[in-house]
Amino acid sequence: MTDRSSSAGSLTRRAFVIGAGAATLAGCVSARPPSVAPQPQVPVREKRVRPPMYEALPDERFPIPAVDISRLEERFWRAEIDYDAREVPGTLIVDTPAKYLYHVRPGGRAVRYEIGVGRDGFSWAGRAIMAYRREWPRWAPPDAMVARQPELEPYSIANGGMGPGLRNPLGARALYIHKDGKDTLYRLHGTPEAWSIGKEVSSGCIRLVNQDIIHLHGSVRDGSPIVVIPDPAKRHLLAV
């Protein structure tokens, strides 16, 4: 199928800038502390057959349960599509308004992933590099985040952060984004919270279900370019 995203067709004509809030990104955690508040209620949907790509991964270091596809609409499932990106193969394109991530492949193709994005005030946009990747990463909230959410103090940098595992906000894999040789504090990472995909919930970072971030981690290469398209509603991220 062919993706019709209006954002993609004008990538080469857009200017991108790092958002002023990049230095204070909240460390890739959902709007609530990990495993504290209950998940929001969602409408009951008709039963669907789970595709093999979203089955459980029992052989992972921390066994990953199957994705609850009642919370992940079929139109958002991972797919390889026709995609005229006008970017070199290997590029990662984060379409923030559409809440899709594309991994550009040769021949006018791309793998499309549905994502959750940062809520207003903790977003970033621009051109950068996916500097490196980590399996089952540790996570530590920046000091600014701890100041806002004191309940995260046990996981602070001073206390060594949170160890890897299913409760870790970075999930099974994390991709680290650098700009001009500096860490933007912006991440692409996993989450077990399928309900959060397609929404604005994280503090700045891009989240994929764990099965999707594992797939992306295995196909992307360190040093790959990344383009993050700003949301027009967040005008502080747009170039003038």
Rank of each mutant, 00 (worst) to 15 (best):
V228L: 10
A147R: 13
I93F: 06
P43W: 03
L208R: 00
L170E: 03
W139M: 11
V117A: 15
W139C: 12
I206D: 07
Y54V: 11
L185F: 05
N210P: 10
R221G: 08
V44Q: 15
A31H: 11
R14W: 05
E114C: 14
A131N: 12
P40Q: 04
E153H: 05
R148Y: 06
D183S: 09
C28T: 11
H189E: 06
V42W: 10
E151T: 11
G116V: 02
R45T: 10
P34N: 11
S202M: 08
I214W: 06
E74L: 11
A128I: 02
I129R: 11
H217W: 08
R133M: 10
L237S: 04
L101S: 02
S6C: 10
I115W: 00
D222W: 03
C205E: 04
H217Q: 08
P230V: 06
L11E: 12
G204T: 03
V111Y: 01
L188N: 11
P164S: 10
S203D: 09
R45M: 09
T2L: 13
S202I: 05
S5L: 13
P141Y: 12
Y155F: 15
A174F: 03
Y100H: 09
S224E: 01
Y102C: 02
V201W: 01
A98I: 05
G19Y: 00
P43R: 09
R119D: 14
H217R: 07
P142Y: 02
I69G: 05
N159E: 05
A79N: 05
G121N: 05
T24K: 04
E200N: 09
A15V: 09
A194W: 02
S203P: 06
W77Q: 04
K47A: 15
I81H: 04
Q149L: 10
D183E: 08
M1A: 10
P51T: 01
G19Q: 09
A85W: 03
W136P: 05
C28I: 12
P63M: 09
G160H: 13
L175Q: 12
F122R: 13
A66L: 05
G161R: 00
E114Y: 13
F76H: 07
G107N: 08
P106T: 03
V29L: 07
A140D: 12
E200C: 10
F122Q: 14
A233Q: 07
K99Y: 08
P106Q: 03
A66Q: 13
D183K: 03
F62K: 01
L11H: 03
V209G: 01
A158N: 03
P38R: 05
Q39T: 07
P192L: 14
S7T: 06
Y132V: 15
V49M: 02
E74N: 09
E46T: 05
G108W: 02
E73V: 04
I64S: 06
P63R: 07
P89R: 05
F62C: 04
R32C: 11
G116K: 04
D212G: 08
E60L: 06
A15G: 14
R134Q: 15
I129P: 15
G108Y: 03
H178M: 07
I18Y: 11
A56E: 01
I206K: 01
K179C: 10
R207I: 02
G198H: 04
D84S: 11
E80D: 15
D143A: 11
